[in-house]
């Protein structure tokens, strides 16, 4: 049982790291702000969520799992909101210009 969970966890964490790397690569290569945001917010949230799930598989104890979930939820919330804010600010700047 534990080996299955370990393998599952490692796989999820690897996938999550891959997502984060992809987000970083996109941030580097994509041309403008909105497309960067588009790539970043989704890949970032998915990557952190996968890592959280993977880590949750590998830990024991409800407290650790709960704090991991809290981390994931916070990242998802703040990522979405800041992305929204940045997009809106850039739109306003464009309108003014």
């Amino acid at each position: 049982m534990s080996t299955v969970l370990d393998i599952l966890g490692t796989a999820m964490m690897t996938a999550g790291t891959g997502f984060l790397l992809m987000a970083a690569f996109a941030f580097w290569r994509l041309p403008d702000l909105l497309s960067r945001l588009h790539a970043l917010t989704k890949a970032d949230t998915a990557g952190v969520a996968l890592i959280v799930c993977g880590a949750a598989c590998m830990t024991s104890g409800i407290a650790a799992v709960l704090s991991l979930v809290l981390c994931g939820v916070l990242v998802a919330l703040s990522g979405a909101t800041t992305g929204h804010l940045i997009a809106q600010a850039s739109l306003e700047d464009e309108e003014r210009a």
């Binding site: 919330l77 909101t81 929204h84 804010l85 809106q88 600010a89 306003e92």
Partner: peptide
Amino acid sequence: APLGEMVVPF
């Protein structure tokens, strides 16, 4: 920041 509909819930 310009107040969007997501800021207050956040």
